[in-house]
Amino acid sequence: MRLIRQILLRMLTTAVTLIGVAVIVFVVIRVVPGNPIAMMLPPGATDEDVLRLTALYGLDKSLPQQFLIWAGGVLHGDFGTSITSRQPVLALVLDRLPATLELSIMALVIAVLIGGVVALTGTRSRDSGIEAAIDIGNGIALSIPDFLWGLILILLFGVLLPVFNISGRITPSLPLNFVTNFYLFESILRGRPDLWLDLISHMFLPSLALAIPLSAIIGQVLKQSLKETMHLDYVTLSRTKGYGENHVILREALPNAILPTLTLVGVQFTFLIGGTVIIERLFSYEGLGNLAIDAVINRDLPLIQGIVILFAVIFTAVNLVVDLLYAVLNPRLRHG
């Protein structure tokens, strides 16, 4: 009963959030300077042409009217038509979404792996020189933003020591007979190492750039809560049973220390997805972020709206997943 109420409440707040995002985006992109119609017409177009085109896209109507027309379409699954490519926004966006999801998830996996190892190592050698070195490393990783890491990685592993691909998602000359746009998942499931190795070679540097700052946050926060947990009585009791440091950290401390980190990772993961916009541009990775930048440059209003709404949906979905995971990992909430 309580669970159902919680889910309903959650859906309601999600709906309100999405409506709010839609209104704000809709208004903002129309208020800022820049006219999509002017971008579409060749130089020397007559005023009449401008008016006709403006009317064609409904841009001559008042803002509330425009919003209602757009929102009405959205309720039917019609997000409008891209001004530049003249294709349905929904199709364009869903086409690019898998690429960005794969990149973000790969970045998250890398961040959790690096952050986890850093936190466990730091806890194991707490209050020593190794921990101090870890703190300094974390500080450096955190104070450099993801796009700068992108440039550094391109320089190091794309130019000076070219071991990874730094442009695109996959080598175009490969046999690209994918059924879905989840290239990485699909090629792994189909057991095609020729494809997924090439994909990873393309995706590794951009996802690492996205992952480094997040891994530093995970490393720092998880190490801190692990260290606090290590003082607790049940950890001490476990030592008297004959267990060594590794076991005590992994089985007694980690499951309890992981909860604050999980909340944080949820919030930070949404920032990471936001970071894909610039990172995809940097690595010419054909994902949602790259599409978003093109849409903004071209003042492609329907496309911008569609992309932003999709990002908002992803963010709320991530938060929902984090809350569910929290309940799974914390028995006190599960039974509460």
Partner: peptide, 24 residues
């Protein structure tokens, strides 16, 4: 030393509210 202690000695701790792991 740890194994020897674990096999032949044991602790009854002070505070039962904090001496059991909440997630196990």
């Amino acid at each position: 030393r740890r194994r020897r202690i674990g096999a032949s000695a044991a602790l009854i701790p002070q505070d039962p509210l904090t001496a059991l792991n909440p997630s196990r």
